[in-house]
């Protein structure tokens, strides 16, 4: 195991639940490099339910593995009472944008100083491959066998619209960019949102793409990501990078002048 894994992973929780070639594993790997630099002792983690939400459980830290969709609400309560800690949420496209959508947009609106990392693998992976608000239109999944009739959310636009003050997107094909972006996100004062598109060979692979080899699904993901701003997007592609940075809007604060009586 690599030295950061040996140092920072919770042995009792291993092996990870990630399938062979799961992008979430690369995200975990990249996150440890950021934590090593920023200092793990400064962090508290909250997650919901799903494959992505298992990520912080594998880290040797204080972790609240909560309910489906509720991680952002739990993180809000935790951050308000421990404002000096960096509170980081890991969740997935279903957890954050379906059942958790309301909590997500309100925390963004409040500009609560937490970082939400949403691992988007276009599907509900843990439950076996059902359509999620991240699933591309016309995709075959277990609950859209004739092709999904719904457009997915653009999570970046959703976050910006809701008031998030740091918004970025990367993919699990770019581990170095993930580490750099996460560092910027956790150091930003205000609501930071990082969407990481992550390959799911097992569920998204088999259902949406009809392939299951990790390298095939990895290549599809890598080739969908466009980092240069002036390049035109082809069908199925998306942009990566930092989309929004607002350091003017005040962070949510309860500092008020109240005379004690």
């Amino acid at each position: 195991m690599n030295p950061l894994g040996k140092k920072y992973l919770r042995k009792e929780a291993l092996p990870t639940i990630f399938c062979p070639g799961c992008g979430h594993g690369t995200v975990l790997n990249s996150t440890l490099r950021m934590l090593d630099k920023v200092g793990l002792e400064n962090f508290l983690f909250v997650s919901g339910i799903g494959c992505s939400s298992w990520l912080p459980v594998f880290i040797k830290a204080d972790v609240l593995h909560t309910l489906h969709g509720r991680a952002v609400a739990v993180a809000t309560g935790l951050k308000l009472v421990q404002p000096d800690k960096k509170v980081m949420v890991f969740n997935g496209d279903g957890d954050n944008m379906a059942i958790g959508g309301n909590h997500f947009i309100h925390a963004a609106r409040r500009n609560i100083d937490i970082t939400v990392v949403m691992l988007n693998n276009y599907i509900y992976g843990m439950t076996g491959g059902q359509a999620s608000p991240g699933t591309p239109l016309n995709s075959k999944t277990k609950t859209s066998p004739y092709g999904s009739h719904e457009k997915p959310f653009d999570a970046v636009k959703l976050a910006i619209g809701a008031g998030a003050t740091f918004v970025a997107r990367e993919t699990s094909a770019s581990p170095i960019k993930i580490t750099r972006t996460l560092e910027k996100a956790v150091n930003h004062r205000g609501f930071s949102f990082v969407e990481i598109m992550s390959q799911c060979p097992t569920q998204a692979g088999r259902n949406i793409y009809g392939k299951s080899a990790p390298s095939d699904i990895f290549r599809i993901l890598r080739d969908s990501a466009v980092s240069k701003k002036d390049t035109e997007l082809l069908q199925g592609q998306f942009r990566t990078g930092i989309f929004h940075l607002d350091e003017e809007t005040p962070v949510y604060s309860q500092k008020i002048e109240v005379a004690a009586s």
């Binding site: 690599n2 950061l4 992973l9 092996p15 070639g21 992008g23 690369t26 990249s30």
Partner: peptide
């Protein structure tokens, strides 16, 4: 390889 490995198996 060290960075991409989902299982942190490579040093």
């Amino acid at each position: 390889c060290e960075f991409i490995c989902p299982d942190l198996a490579i040093t």
